[in-house]
Design a binder for these strands. Structure first.
Lengths: 146, 146
DNA sequence: CCTTGAGTTGAAGTGAACTTCAACTTGCAG
DNA sequence: CTGCAAGTTGAAGTTCACTTCAACTCAAGG
């Protein structure tokens, strides 16, 4: 078995056939066709799907994921180095997200946990003791930008 | 200023007025009304919104958040202890999520990063070397249950 | 061959979480 | 008292990420 049918590919990747077709329509993955127009997937496509699933876990939209995957070579099967470059960048994203979540965890115990949370007074959520009027409140803590 | 108008509350919480109305319809927050039927928010409601935003960051649905918030007393303003109890449970969820993300990060460098990722062979994503037929593949790594 | 399970398509449906709209009312500064 | 920014409502619209459906074709075992 050189290539996989959509059913097998779905089973291997843990993603429903309908989702795989959707990903293909959206340009996230690709497939060859048999003479009878059925999809056949190369096993290397499993890497793409794994990458997609991991990125989704980090809260990345399919749009952004497509953009990331677009950096892989189009005309040849991506090499280890190609994947390494890509995933290195995303490891950073993951690390940022992890750092944010750790901050959230600490603030949750330290701030809501102690009952002091009032957003406009709490040092943790509003580090500069900046009152409203300048704009967001919780955003300072919650924004990806923050 | 004892209570906040929806505009002020939106500014303080970093959540759009339309979202606040939506949260209220969904039973996540509450407001008093003026004689002219306008919303007035107590500052303690900011805590709820902060909690909602934090929980959303962890990937929790509003449905689940409502269920969590339902554990707060209805007839009195939640005390420090009330919030402490609630946020303690959620600190655990956050920690689980953080652990998952750390695992994802390690797998990303160790697995996709090295180029070995093929899902059905990779030890990291498929720790028991369990081949398809038993069901999911990547799911083993990515499922909340896993 | 024939049957049957797996695959194909475009179009429409779903659910979550909001936003936008239109038509109307309130509240406060001048 | 007036003007106007800010508030109110229900209904409909939007985006994302899929799923479901109907009608049809393909592939492979008996």
């Amino acid at each position: 078995m050189e290539t996989l049918t959509i059913g097998d590919f779905a089973a291997r990747s843990g993603v429903a056939p309908s989702a795989l077709r959707y990903y293909e329509r959206e340009g996230l993955i690709r497939s060859a066709r048999t003479s009878g127009n059925q999809r056949r997937y190369e096993r290397t496509e499993l890497r793409r799907v794994a990458f997609i699933r991991i990125a989704q876990q980090v809260g990345v939209s399919l749009d952004e994921i497509r953009a990331a995957l677009a950096e892989l070579p189009e005309n040849r099967t991506p090499t280890r180095a190609d994947w390494a470059r890509l995933s290195d960048r995303w490891r950073h994203r993951l690390e940022e997200k992890i750092a944010l979540m750790q901050r959230l965890r600490d603030d949750l115990s330290g701030c809501i946990g102690c009952g002091c949370l009032s957003l406009h007074r709490c040092k943790l959520i509003n580090p500069d003791d900046r009152l409203a009027g300048d704009g967001p409140g919780a955003r300072i803590l919650l924004d990806p930008a923050g």
